[in-house]
């Protein structure tokens, strides 16, 4: 939308938005300098510099153990959710059977339900049936519930521009269903699949409430240990952990976003 108002008339808007963006972006970066502090006081600016809090992180079983739990659970959640989500959204694409809209709504609904509710529900189920509390499988299944909607939304958008008749052409030329999917459909939605994998990994890695309800002790996730330390005894190792989490949760989506906009811009130029 072009506008007919001069930049000077809008100066107040630029200043205000600049302040809001400052509030959104700058505070969370403070963990980076604090993590390199040489003292136990978490002040900014730090009085001296050192790597001691990173050494503390990588040297302590509490942290390193929970990091492995988180990485393991997030990787498995990514595999489970992407497989189940891609299959479901493929099945629901251009389908017109009676239940299809209900199924789609059900698979996206965890997004609208407060995660504390999902967490309590899963805890009650696990506590009753036994065998899933404090296990990798229990965490992965729990995280899959909250990660699935992200895969469904991403894949629906990916499939939306895909015409099913292409696959039918492949099948009429002799490919079976699976081969047609892998050779014709999948290459066209590979970008959405990659986004789905990244999102489901990150949702699981960052998830706190379900982890809090269903796993403790040696099965605690990094987010759970971070939360407990934050609540009970704040220690500067947290700054090192936070810096690592900041990088893990914001850099990959940023790269993917930049790559996607470049691809879009290139395609746009070709089309135009």
């Amino acid at each position: 939308m072009e506008s007919y108002v001069s930049h000077r008339d809008r100066l107040w808007l630029y200043i205000f938005v600049g302040l809001v963006i400052f509030y959104l972006v700058v505070p969370m970066l403070i963990v980076i300098p604090v993590s390199f502090s040489s003292t136990t006081a978490m002040t900014f600016p730090p009085r001296g510099w050192s790597l001691r809090w990173y050494e503390a992180f990588f040297g302590e079983q509490k942290w390193i153990g929970s990091l492995w739990v988180s990485l393991r659970v997030a990787t498995l959640t990514m595999i489970v959710t992407t497989l189940a989500g891609v299959a479901a959204s493929y099945a629901l694409h251009q389908s017109s059977f009676r239940l299809s809209e209900t199924i789609r709504a059900t698979l996206i609904s965890p997004l609208a339900v407060p995660s504390i509710l999902i967490g309590v529900g899963i805890f009650f189920v696990y506590a009753r049936i036994g065998g899933l509390l404090n296990t990798t499988a229990g965490l992965v299944l729990g995280h899959s519930v909250v990660a699935l909607p992200f895969v469904m939304l991403t894949m629906s958008a990916g499939f939306s521009s895909f015409d099913m008749s292409q696959e039918m052409v492949a099948r009429s030329l002799g490919a079976n269903r699976f081969k047609a999917f892998v050779t014709v459909t999948l290459p066209q939605v590979k970008f959405s699949v990659a986004t789905s994998m990244l999102l489901s990994f990150l949702v699981s890695f960052d998830e706190l409430i379900i982890s809090l309800m269903v796993a403790s002790g040696p099965m605690s996730t990094l987010s759970r240990v971070t939360f407990a330390t934050l609540r009970d005894d704040v220690d500067p190792t947290l700054a090192a952990v936070s810096t690592l989490m900041l990088i893990v949760t914001s850099v990959p989506p940023l790269l993917l976003h930049l790559y996607a906009s470049r691809v879009r811009a290139r395609n746009g130029r070709n089309a135009g």
């Binding site: 505070p27 969370m28 970066l29 403070i30 963990v31 604090v34 978490m42 900014f44 990150l202 960052d206 706190l208 987010s223 971070t226 939360f227 934050l230 704040v234 947290l238 700054a239 936070s242 989490m245 900041l246 949760t249 914001s250 989506p253 940023l254």
Partner: peptide
């Protein structure tokens, strides 16, 4: 995109 835990901790410091 950034972890909510990280952002909450930053505010604690600030």
């Amino acid at each position: 995109w950034t972890s909510g835990l990280v952002r909450t901790f930053s505010w604690l410091i600030i």
